[in-house]
Design a binder for these strands. Structure first.
Length: 571
DNA sequence: GCCGTTTTCGGCCCGACTGTTTTCAGTCG
């Protein structure tokens, strides 16, 4: 579905440019709506176009469907090209700076000639932005910080986005004549939150055939490097992909070498040297003799180590742990028995409760918690107590209906207010099975205020989970200022579990925080926070992140059998 | 630019928050 992302991106840029021109704000709004629709389509838009059903997609009518067809035929949209020529500004990147939107971009362009990150940074550092009407010193500082944030995430792609394109490409390469195996190594294989480029390793009889197939893939924008065993391309989505062809007898060594991390590999090579061996991408050698190379496991075993799962290869103690036999048995997707955080169309979800339950049942969950937003989050149509009580009754009825072979748990994602109190009374909270509390407002509170605020919320005896504890959105919004150590202590005292939010933009807590949490014997709940049926599959990203945080099955709340979970929830 | 249908034209989600102002524009979700 690579075209979905490309088209969504083109329409988003179109929306921004139209908004910057300031003439047709409702057209811009329509483009944005189409972007959301395409992003959540769940089907290849090209297939929809081929069936001539583009206009059946919500938010897509005659005008936008024509633009989409034009893009599919020619790779561009005429109106977009005209606007780009008229407003030569890198609007997508400028818009990604927190606090900067179309109006600000227009102002900066017209008054200061700002067209990209560099010219924006210069204007900000020269103090010119604060002098503009409606701007000030704080805005200028915020922009400078925002530039750093954008720069730090600019050259990396979200793992989930990479994953959505990578399997199709892997299959295409796998189908080339004489290809024995294809593995994507690097940070992708280590399941980092974001990936820089993708490293394809191929064991093939005829390298040239593979190179040719790789460099002529559909979405290739540029071929950066093309040699006998290595090709590098940049896709239209700006994702860079490297391909290396490696002989069969060295494939395991190549895999080990190109999976990294660099620091992990440095340790391994040190161990090899101390044993009078030499390790490189072609194998493990004693003088000229190949000791190991074909299988990755053999490399580790020959170094006196057990094989280490890629998620742990960060040189964060995994090598010592495997030496001592203390490497944990990490949690697996199969271990998960349910999901404790999901939304429906009662708040800001897209699907009905029945649709969500059907989908959860398909995933063979033993229990499933419906936890819509509460009243303070008005924009998400959060529930007041009256609606929440109706929801509780509704779930009781659904549970007795026998329609789902699964316990439906009554929950809510309750807003933590400015003073740390909750926006639902204790009487109502007491009637819920699972109470998750989250921060959705005042995210710029000082560390002291935010920490106290969250700790206060966790002191409420009805609270079971702290949702997305740091509030970050990868590449979009930094974590809010919060001191997690006291939060963990209060959570421990009150038997509150930490959420590992599996949304690929959140993955919150991060691996370091997860390790800190389990070191204090806190439970972790790996939750999808699904806002629609398809997002229930986010669980796998939560599992990747959990494994990177050294989390075992027994650390995880939702690996428990229902009865044990219910006992835990009763505190 | 899309959409519904007591509307094929006229409205389009909307309230909180921030930083800038001194009543509000812009951004966010």
């Amino acid at each position: 579905m690579a075209k979905n992302a490309e088209i969504a991106r083109a329409l988003k840029e179109l929306a921004l440019l139209v908004e910057i021109e300031g003439k047709e704000k409702y057209a811009a709004r329509a483009y944005k709506r189409a972007v959301r629709s395409i992003t959540s389509l769940g089907e290849d838009i090209e297939a929809v176009a081929n069936r001539e059903e583009l206009e059946s997609i919500p938010g897509i009518g005659k005008g936008i469907s024509k633009k989409i067809r034009r893009y599919l035929e020619t790779g561009s949209i005429p109106l977009l090209e005209r606007l780009r020529a008229r407003i030569p500004v890198k609007v997508m990147v400028l818009d990604s700076i927190p606090g900067v939107g179309p109006k600000t971009i227009a102002l900066l362009y017209h008054e200061l000639g700002v067209t990209d990150l560099d010219s924006l940074e210069k204007a900000a550092r020269d103090g010119k932005i604060a002098l503009l009407k409606g701007m000030g010193k704080k805005t200028e500082t915020q922009i400078i910080e925002g530039i750093d944030l954008v720069r730090s995430g600019l050259d990396r792609t979200l793992l989930a986005d990479a994953m959505s394109v990578v399997e199709t490409i892997r299959q295409k390469i796998q189908n080339v004549d004489g290809v024995n195996q294809v593995v994507i190594a690097g940070s992708y294989r280590r399941r980092r939150e974001t990936v820089g480029d993708l490293d394809f390793l191929v064991d093939a009889d005829d390298p040239e055939l593979v190179m040719e197939a790789f460099s002529t893939l559909d979405n290739v924008q540029d071929v950066l490097v093309k040699g006998p065993t290595k090709t590098a391309v940049r896709l239209k989505s700006s994702l860079q992909m490297d391909l290396r062809v490696i002989p069969t007898e060295s494939f395991g060594a190549g895999l080990q070498y190109f999976t990294g991390s660099v620091d992990h590999n440095v340790r391994l090579r040190g161990i090899a040297r101390s044993m009078g061996l030499k390790l490189n991408e072609y194998g493990l050698y004693r003088d000229e003799e190949l000791v190991a190379g074909e299988r990755e496991e053999d490399i580790y075993e020959s170094l006196g180590l057990a094989w280490i799962t890629p998620e742990l290869r960060e040189n964060h103690g995994e090598i010592d742990a495997v030496k001592n036999g203390t490497l944990p048995h990490l949690v697996k997707l199969d271990d998960i028995r349910g999901d404790l955080h999901s939304h429906t169309d009662q708040s800001d979800g897209s699907n009905t409760i029945e649709e969500m339950l059907d989908a959860a049942a398909e995933r063979e969950h033993e229990y499933f918690c419906v936890s819509d937003h509460t009243q303070s989050l008005t924009i998400a149509n959060g529930m007041d107590e009256e609606r929440l009580l109706e929801r509780i009754e509704e779930i009781d009825t659904l549970n007795t209906s026998g329609k789902w072979d699964m316990m439906i748990l009554k929950g809510a994602e309750v807003d933590i207010l400015a003073d740390g109190t909750l926006d639902i009374t204790d009487d109502v909270l007491a009637q819920l099975d699972v109470v998750t509390v989250s921060v959705h407002s005042r995210m710029k509170d000082s560390k002291k205020v935010m920490t106290e605020r969250v700790c206060t919320a966790l002191e409420n005896k009805h609270v079971h989970l702290l949702g997305h504890p740091t509030g970050r959105l990868i590449g979009k919004r930094a974590e809010f200022e919060i001191d997690l150590e006291p939060v963990f202590e209060v959570a421990k005292k009150n038997q509150v579990a930490m959420e590992l939010n599996a949304n690929p933009y959140r993955l919150d807590l991060n691996p370091g925080n997860l390790r800190a949490a389990i070191n204090m014997d806190l439970k972790i709940a790996i939750n999808t926070d699904a806002h629609k049926v398809s997002e229930l599959d986010y669980m796998k990203f939560g599992i990747f992140q959990a494994r990177r945080g050294w989390i075992t099955k027994s650390d995880v709340l939702n690996t428990m059998a229902l009865k044990d979970l219910q006992k835990w929830l009763k505190k």
